[in-house]
């Protein structure tokens, strides 16, 4: 579903991604781990067509980047730590606006389904600026799944959320993954990631330095795996 070969991204003289290879099969839930500044967000922004690669080959859902960016965007749902929503519009108006941008069919029905999924039906006519951070993040997921994308990218979706909001978000994430979508999520929260993902990749020094499937790790061993990956002892 996602194929990346020898991806390089430079910002001026600084090279952030140094020949990164990455592959994700359909239905996998990959957690992308790594220290601050490792290039996780840069990598996701390239997959999301928000940034151009300097070098390398990328295919998402069968389409090549950057030349088939519009086709890739149709297959993608993206959630970042920013909600990407308009505070002065209601939840329903936000979804309607993005539904029109994604040319979603039977929009009214789909808006109802999505609001049900993220548990915001009772707040559909409230302005988004009156929502808590957790509610905004749930609506952001609703926005991202509105057009029923095949691939979902989550960039630190738990940032700034309290425990209850994180648990609620996890429930929505599990639901999204259970529908067979391919998910790539960056996170610093190893315990949460261990529970959600089916594969863990560590991005360090601009490359994927280690990878492990959930079935290959004993429960609770993700921290050891992560530390070893950063130290260059596995992968």
């Amino acid at each position: 579903m996602i194929e990346v070969r020898k991806l390089v991204k430079r910002f001026g003289l600084k090279t952030v991604l140094r020949g990164l290879d990455f592959q994700v099969e359909q239905g996998e839930f990959v957690a992308l781990l790594g220290p601050n500044g490792a290039g996780k967000t840069t990598f996701l922004r390239i997959l999301a067509t928000l940034s151009r690669p300097s070098l390398g080959e990328i295919r998402v859902a069968g389409f090549g980047l950057p030349h088939q960016a519009a086709q890739v965007r149709q297959k993608l749902g993206v959630v970042s730590h920013m909600p990407l929503l308009y505070g002065d519009l209601t939840a329903e108006e936000n979804l309607r606006f993005f539904g029109q941008m994604y040319n979603v069919n039977v929009l009214n029905q789909r808006i109802g389904e999505v609001l049900d999924l993220v548990g915001l039906t009772s707040r559909r006519r409230d302005l988004v600026r009156t929502f808590s951070r957790g509610m905004q993040q749930r609506l952001a997921i609703g926005r991202a799944v509105l057009h029923d994308p095949e691939v979902m990218l989550f960039d630190e979706p738990h940032t700034g959320l309290d425990q209850d909001a994180c648990d609620m978000l996890d429930k929505v994430l599990r639901d999204v993954a259970a529908r067979g979508r391919t998910v790539v999520m960056t996170s610093h929260d190893l315990a949460r990631v261990e529970d959600l993902a089916t594969r863990y990749d560590v991005l360090s020094k601009g490359i994927i330095s280690a990878t492990s499937k959930k079935s290959e790790l004993k429960s609770g061993n993700i921290l050891t795996f992560y530390k070893k990956a950063l130290a260059g002892e596995n992968g």
């Binding site: 999301a48 067509t49 928000l50 519009a70 086709q71 965007r73 149709q74 993608l76 993206v78 970042s80 920013m82 909600p83 990407l84 929503l85 308009y86 505070g87 993005f98 941008m101 994604y102 040319n103 926005r143």
Partner: peptide, 12 residues
Amino acid sequence: RGCLDGLLLAPV
């Protein structure tokens, strides 16, 4: 609010 990214992500 990062909404520009939201617009740029749309397949238009």
